[in-house]
Amino acid sequence: MNNDESLNIVHTPVMLNEVLSFIAKDSKIAVDATLGEGGHTKAMLDLNLEVHSFERDSIILEIAKNRLKNYDKFYYYNNTYDNIINELDESLIGNIDFILYDLGVSLFHFKKAERGFSFKDNAKLDMRIGINEKSAYDIVNGYTKEELERIFRDYGEINNAKKIANIIVKERNIRKIETSRELENIIFHNTDKSARYGKRHPATLVFQAIRIEVNDELNILEKSINNIASILKKNGIAVFISYHSLEDRIVKKFFKENEKTKNKDGIFKLLNNKVKVPTSEEIKLNPASRSAKMRAVQKI
């Protein structure tokens, strides 16, 4: 077992105690759909589980591999989690005791990846988590006004999506928008003064929408969630941690549609009818957890 805690791990695993509380004592095999730097996987390995972990970003996968290199039951896959059912050995399909989806983007990408995820740093517009054909630069400078409006409306739930799209097209016609700071400045200075200094920076939802589009995040989630029943064994448990309403809506809708009730056949039992959120103590220690929502189900 790896006892080396000297590695500089940026991302603190969110709601770790709550995640572990859903793992049955007789569990043997788990899947971590979103490995990141390996915090949740490490905790599951420490329970002596065999853990199969998925990470789409090869750079962050190397960090996790190094951290977890002394664990014999750690298996990793450089792929998106909608490919779990294709990557796992056939003998594992239908025999997984526990699966975790921590849908948040690792702080590695915001603080160290230098790919323009955050407007607090002036990095080239990229936002790719792993290998994708299109980058944030391609979207900002290449999408039509109507396409930009669509992603801002659908993935950012931005009220003035049309206005923001028009502004970006106008600005890029003068010169290409190269960096995260340039994009942030355009949005900030074209936002009403009353909204510039609120609790949320006016560029936050624009950056969220672009990141979701770049990485196809919601489509991947919808594809993957439809495979859960096939992956889990009977009484197996799936836990989802989401960080914005779009993700949570997909998870909530799927499990409500497939929940077994007195009046409806279904394949899942909801384990927490009321969504779980981090404790105030955790939020103080790890502010990145503040928007987390956890939902859990059991295959029946």
Rank of each mutant, 00 (worst) to 15 (best):
K260Q: 14
E50L: 03
T261G: 13
V140A: 11
E149W: 03
E182V: 00
A229P: 01
D32S: 06
K73M: 04
R181L: 12
L68H: 07
F119T: 07
G116A: 10
E213D: 11
N272T: 12
R211K: 14
L35S: 04
E146N: 14
K25Y: 12
R249A: 03
N272Q: 13
K262V: 11
I212Q: 10
F22N: 07
H11F: 02
V140F: 10
A113D: 09
L221C: 11
A165K: 13
K252N: 12
G198H: 12
I129Y: 01
K193A: 05
D82Q: 08
E55C: 04
D126W: 07
I84Q: 00
I186D: 08
I151C: 05
H52S: 05
K253A: 06
E182C: 03
K276Y: 08
K162C: 00
L246G: 09
A292H: 13
V140Y: 06
E37H: 02
E281R: 03
G266P: 01
A209D: 10
N227K: 11
A209Y: 06
L221I: 14
M294N: 10
N86T: 05
V251M: 11
A288S: 06
K170E: 15
E247M: 10
N48W: 00
R56G: 14
L92P: 05
T34S: 13
H11E: 02
N2L: 00
K134N: 05
N215R: 01
K199F: 04
T204I: 12
I158M: 12
S289D: 06
S27E: 05
I241V: 14
S242A: 06
E90H: 04
M15P: 10
F268W: 02
G130L: 06
E50T: 15
L221M: 14
E149K: 15
G94K: 01
N141C: 06
R128K: 12
T144E: 13
E282I: 02
